[in-house]
């Protein structure tokens, strides 16, 4: 797949103003999340653009994953979590009463810290999302869709001869790419990734980073990572999160990755990315 390197590093991504022309797919307004009445993150105002990778970085426990989970209503499944404020997905507030969280999750996919393939074959893992979402596909269409997803996830060449093998027989890095293929298969608009390479070796990590760059034009990708170098490598836009004195996570800086990593505006960002704190 041809990679548009002009979008990776060049002056057109140094200024956040240039993103304003692209579609805002997700937008949060004064978003906050509390667990059992203890505020975890507060006053989150962010915009996520189509065709770009946004990284959310920050020290452990600052609420990055909490923020991510509130973008596709996965927090509904966490006991005691309460979400306030607004999250607009294509202009619609996903927390309004008439919205079905199941539908939201089929449009906003998610990949988790540890690879979590289902205990089925490689093929069935990718087909799972298509089946549960009631896609009406013939056998050939299903096969084509699975192949396409695996190709996008840069896994096809490695598994094309063993689609019926059990997913657990794949390596960790392959399993994580399978999880990405699984998410891509149902053609979501947004892909959320919660520290997707934290349990992988450097080579698998590099593969996943490359794959994210290669698919980014078609999606809105939001990547949570506490590996700031990963954010530097992969993302176009970076949001830096930091807990305040009450351990409530807040966004302290938000801007083009090239700017954040060369001339951060906030002293705390500077200290964090240069390894002085956190």
């Amino acid at each position: 797949m041809e990679i548009d390197y002009k979008k990776v590093v060049s002056k057109d991504v140094t200024d956040l103003g240039l993103f304003k022309d692209s579609d805002v797919v997700i937008k949060t307004e004064d978003l906050y999340v509390s667990y059992r009445d203890k505020l975890a993150i507060d006053r989150i105002n962010l915009e996520f653009y189509k065709g770009y990778i946004t990284a959310i970085i920050g020290p452990s426990g600052c609420g990055k994953s909490t923020l991510l989970r509130s973008l596709n209503r996965m927090n509904d499944l966490i006991q005691g979590a309460k979400v306030g404020g607004k999250v607009y997905f294509n202009g619609v507030d996903i927390y309004s009463k008439e919205i079905d969280p199941v539908f939201i999750r089929s449009r906003i996919g998610m990949v988790f810290q540890r690879p979590n393939p289902f205990p089925f074959s490689v093929f069935e893992n990718v087909a799972f999302g298509l089946r549960v979402n009631g896609f009406k596909l013939t056998k050939e269409e299903l096969r084509a869709r699975v192949k396409d997803s695996l190709e996008k996830a840069a896994l096809w060449d490695e598994v094309k001869d063993r689609l019926d093998a059990h997913a657990y027989s794949l390596s960790g890095g392959q399993q994580q790419r399978l999880c990405i293929a699984r998410a891509i298969a149902i053609e979501p608009e947004v892909i959320l990734l919660d520290e997707p390479t934290v349990s992988l070796d450097p080579l698998s990590t590099a593969k996943i980073e490359e794959l994210l760059r290669s698919i980014k034009n078609d999606y809105t990708i939001i990547l949570v990572t506490h590996n700031m170098l990963q954010a530097a490598r992969v993302s176009d836009i970076t949001a830096v999160m930091m807990p305040d004195e009450n351990m409530v996570g807040r966004i302290i800086e938000y801007g083009a990755t090239s700017e954040i990593f060369t001339k951060p505006k906030d002293k705390r960002t500077e200290d964090y990315i240069s390894g002085r704190i956190g």
Partner: peptide, 11 residues
């Protein structure tokens, strides 16, 4: 292709 290759080629 490594991510850095993309950047280097633009250089």
């Amino acid at each position: 292709m490594r991510l850095i290759d993309i950047a280097i080629s633009s250089l």
